[in-house]
């Protein structure tokens, strides 16, 4: 997965897209790659996770071999006009950017093309080995990666149309581009992940590189330990055990049981996810990441990136 040039990390809101994107970026750096990490929604979550100051449209190296930027349609438009049309003067006309923003809001694919175009442009320039995108949530990603094609269908001629061709080449090459769908072990997150993969496969030619299930609680007991736990947890045994130990251990049992319940529920959702995906075209990587959600963000990213490195090697 990290051998590709462009990865979009997406999933339902709240599943930990930014964390996974940042961790993947760290894992890629650890493999000796030069990485650009791009935040799509300017929420500032990424800079917080990476413990750096606010990010801008111009990539900034925040640690050796790791650069980061935040996407901005206006800047992307200015860059597009400057680079591809070689008419920097036009871009400077006051109010023009406003008009474009307005049109871009209305016409299908314009905004997405500017954004995706910027990402593809970074890939084409080749300053980085891999561009990792902390993308928008599931609702937008299909429109985003399919934007060059959508726009081509809408505007038949013109420079914007021509520009979409090379973008499509990068986006539709599974060696180069992939979408990473992040889910957690929850009903809605799993359903959205299945729907998203189905939509990506049916509505776009962009490859789904991996499914990442984030925050998977670890298994509590082995099968044989389960039997012992069940005995300890039996109502009739509780008082006997308490007497032997000299202390009531009900709360410890309850805490363990909560862990078991969370694990069981997670296993149930993971198998639901697997069976949903089994109906679709196969996806190469299916990764399970442990639950570190109670760690501070820097520790969290470090731990997750080590997990990812191990899983991907």
């Amino acid at each position: 997965m990290l051998d590709r040039k462009l990865l979009f990390i997406t999933g339902k809101g709240g599943v930990g897209k930014s964390t996974v994107a940042a961790s993947l970026a760290r894992a890629a750096v650890a493999q000796g790659k030069k990485v650009l990490l791009c935040e799509m929604d300017a929420k500032g979550a990424l800079s917080k996770l990476l413990q750096t100051t606010e990010l801008g449209f111009v990539p900034r190296e925040i640690s050796p071999n790791l650069s980061a930027m935040t996407m901005n349609t206006q800047d992307a438009l200015r860059e597009y006009v400057g680079i591809f049309l070689k008419t920097p003067l036009i871009a400077a006309i006051p109010g023009l950017a406003g008009i474009f923003d307005f049109v871009a809001d209305a016409a299908p694919g314009v905004k997405e093309v500017l954004v995706v175009g910027k990402l593809c442009y970074e890939v084409r320039k080749g300053n980085f080995d891999i561009v990792i995108v902390d993308a928008e949530s599931t609702g937008h990603i299909v429109a985003q990666v399919a934007a060059p094609t959508t726009l081509r269908n809408f505007v038949s001629i013109g420079p914007l149309n021509e520009q979409t061709l090379w973008m499509t080449e990068i986006l539709e090459d599974p060696q180069k581009t992939g979408v990473v769908v992040v889910a957690t072990c929850e009903e809605m997150a799993v359903n959205e992940a299945i729907d998203l993969v189905a939509a990506l496969q049916s509505k776009t030619n962009v490859d789904t590189a991996a499914i990442v299930v984030n925050r998977v609680p670890s298994e509590v007991f082995t099968k044989s330990q389960e039997v012992v736990f069940a005995q300890l947890n039996l109502a009739k045994n509780k008082s006997i055990v308490a007497k032997k130990i000299g202390l009531n251990i009900d709360l410890a049992l309850q805490a363990t049981d909560l862990g078991r319940a969370r694990r069981n529920l997670a296993t149930h959702h993971i198998s639901w996810l697997r069976s949903g995906l089994a109906q679709l075209q196969p996806i190469k990587d299916f990764l399970l990441l442990p639950d570190f959600s109670y760690e501070a963000s820097d520790v969290l990213v470090n731990k997750l990136s080590s997990e990812l490195e191990a899983e991907l090697s």
Binding site: I99, A107, V110, F154, I157, G158, N161
Partner: peptide
Amino acid sequence: FYEIADRLLGKGLLRDV
């Protein structure tokens, strides 16, 4: 603006909008 927009985006897009 329309003329520039046609050059940048493609003919007629802005007019449709």
